[in-house]
């Protein structure tokens, strides 16, 4: 496919209530830099239902143009509907490149779309730049469980597509709303959507945990010892005004609900401070939190891999260190 413009597109996934997912706004940050270097517009593509809030959000966070597909069949993500909509838009406008969040939906969608268009896709990128020699996007991504980084180019096919790991880039500062909004009247017939949602399994308690928006996260892993072990974790979180996170091990043990899970199959987070308590640091967990500004690890095993990413590490027992830290904080506040 030949590109018709130098524009850079960024997909904005939406929630069921029509608000933008964080990743859709985050991507405007690296998107701005790439669009400027490419010499084209930064275009946000919003797909969903009743998406006014999302359109407003991307318009005030730096998009030059917003292309909106707003219809009931897009309220929840489905592979078939989203691939149809994006393939239609990409064929019509033919931008030179597009960023998609490497969320579960983004990674379901990206490869399907790239294959449909017969172009290249780079998965789960953690750094983006323009290759000086060729002017192509240089997509940097981890492989071999993060042991090796690869820089990938897509020299001869357009659009260049990549999924970008959430939490790597910060949201750009909000500014004035100057975006041109284009509404595309596009619909997908129900019979073309070959999957159907039968049941959403919400865990008991069904709590909403805002890990992605948290400034401070205190997380517990297998090392907290049991559901009651999360008591001291919650106390520390309360003292710091932090959100409680957890590793997959603790969630699989049933000590805390999935809503708290940080890592490859949970939330990807990037708070100012991440305190990992009794978390060994499996590569899947590190993938979800290693872009935090400051990382503190508390673990009794001095060999735990979590220490390799920690700025501050304490080798010690959770049951001793965590309550003592809570006491220090409360003392300072008093």
């Amino acid at each position: 496919m030949e590109s018709k413009s130098k524009d850079l597109w960024v997909l904005c996934e939406t929630n069921e209530d029509g608000t933008a997912k964080n990743i859709g706004v985050e991507l405007l940050n690296p998107g701005r830099r790439l669009a400027d270097k490419q010499g084209g517009k930064l275009v946000s593509v919003v797909i969903g239902y009743k998406t006014d809030a999302a359109v407003k959000d991307v318009s005030t966070h730096g998009a030059d143009q917003v292309i909106v597909v707003d219809s009931e069949e897009f309220q929840r993500y489905s592979t078939d509907a989203y691939v149809a909509a994006l393939a239609h838009l990409l064929e019509k406008y033919a931008p030179t490149s597009m960023l998609i969040g490497a969320t579960p939906n983004g990674r379901d969608l990206g490869p399907r779309l790239s294959c449909h268009l017969g172009t290249g896709l780079t998965a789960d990128c953690t750094a983006l730049d323009i290759d000086e020699d060729s002017g192509n996007i240089a997509w940097t991504r981890p492989a071999f469980g993060g042991n090796l980084m690869a820089v990938i180019l897509c020299p001869d096919h357009r659009p260049q597509l990549g999924t970008v790991r959430p939490g790597v880039f910060k949201k750009p500062e909000a500014g004035e709303d100057k975006a041109e909004v284009i509404r595309e009247d596009f619909h997908v017939e129900a019979c073309k959507i070959r999957t159907s949602l039968l049941q959403v399994i919400r865990e008991e308690g069904g709590e909403v945990v805002d890990l992605e928006g948290a400034d401070i996260i205190v997380s517990g892993g297998r090392g907290v010892g049991g559901p009651e072990g999360f008591g001291v974790i919650r106390d520390l979180a309360d003292a710091l005004g932090a959100t409680v996170g957890a590793s997959r091990a603790a969630v699989d043990e049933g000590w805390i609900s999935h809503a708290h899970q940080v890592g490859q199959t949970g939330k990807t987070v990037g708070p100012k401070l991440y305190i990992a308590c009794g978390i060994s640091g499996a590569i899947q967990h590190l993938a979800g939190m290693s872009s935090s500004d400051v990382i503190v690890a508390i673990n009794k095993d001095p060999e735990a891999p979590i220490f390799s990413v920690a700025d501050y590490g304490i080798v010690g027992k959770i049951s001793e260190v965590v309550p003592a830290l809570t006491a220090e904080i409360n003392k300072a506040k008093a």
Binding site: G120, T122, D131, M149, V151, G313
Partner: peptide, 16 residues
């Protein structure tokens, strides 16, 4: 369509 331009071992974070 994609090419590996180069690979590298990620820089180790300085010991905390």
């Amino acid at each position: 369509p994609t090419r590996v331009k180069r690979t590298f071992v990620p820089p180790r974070k300085e010991a905390g």
